[in-house]
Design a protein around this nucleic acid. Sequence first.
DNA 1: AACTGTCCCTGCAAGC
DNA 2: TGCTTGCAGGGACAGT
Length: 278
Amino acid sequence: MPELPEVETVRRGLASRVAGRTVDSVWVGRERVVRRTSREELIAGLTGVKIEGADRRGKYLLLPLDSGEQVMIHLRMSGQVLLVDGEEPIADHTHVVATFTGGDQLRFIDPRTFGEVVVFDPERVGEVLPELVRLGPDPIAEDFPRAVLREIVMGTSRALKPLLLDQHRIAGIGNIYADEILHAARLRPDRAADSLDSRAVTRLHRSILDILTRAVEAGGSTLPDTQYVDLLGEGGWFQFEHRVYGRTGERCTTCGRGWIRRITSGGRSTHFCPVCQH
DNA sequence: AACTGTCCCTGCAAGC
DNA sequence: TGCTTGCAGGGACAGT
């Protein structure tokens, strides 16, 4: 599932291969993918404009346009953004196609249609994309000092897992990386946030930065049952580094003593080692 | 404030 | 073989 590292990998592809290009025409298939506005607004907002760059906040991709507007793309569960030759056959579940001058196409593909594509005026971001305004700090895109994490953690008695998943607190962490981060920090996912001592906060801070940085370097995680690939269709490698996610019942490779358990926390499947996480 | 459950949607796996 | 059922998950939202 695309989380911060996967979205960042796509962003880098867009920044290097799509920034500077001008959209010649736009096709929208399923209206659900542009539900935030409308088919007409997306087509009107993208046609004839140049994409000037590629930014990211949490799991949100933001592409500034030379019209002054921006494109927001969210991949949610199963979204893909692919840059392909316009001659390539259209894959199933392709919902938006932007054709560049020259014939290449940027395609948005999403079997589960949770993802979205929106063109919006940045001055009206609060009306169109209110959750974007409320997003917490992004640990990779911005400075994320230990003191910021300490404030977030100490301010609540919630369990660590749902806290890490709360995009309004910290932006970009999803179910896979939350489990991997908490394992690396040797903290149980159901541990109350405000029960952490100073050293535990330090471990959590380091683990957030370390896991996310390494996952970005690996091009994200591509799991057998998910379709995450980068802009050019390549999968990532970080799944081979996963120590708990999807390893229920296996021996813990960190301590060599525990067996990975799976529980539900914050309504999400959660994996951890009961021996080395406390 | 914190928690649970529901919804959206599709592909896949398990059970019959 | 082919059907039905359940599950996964990001995030908004309603209800307790």
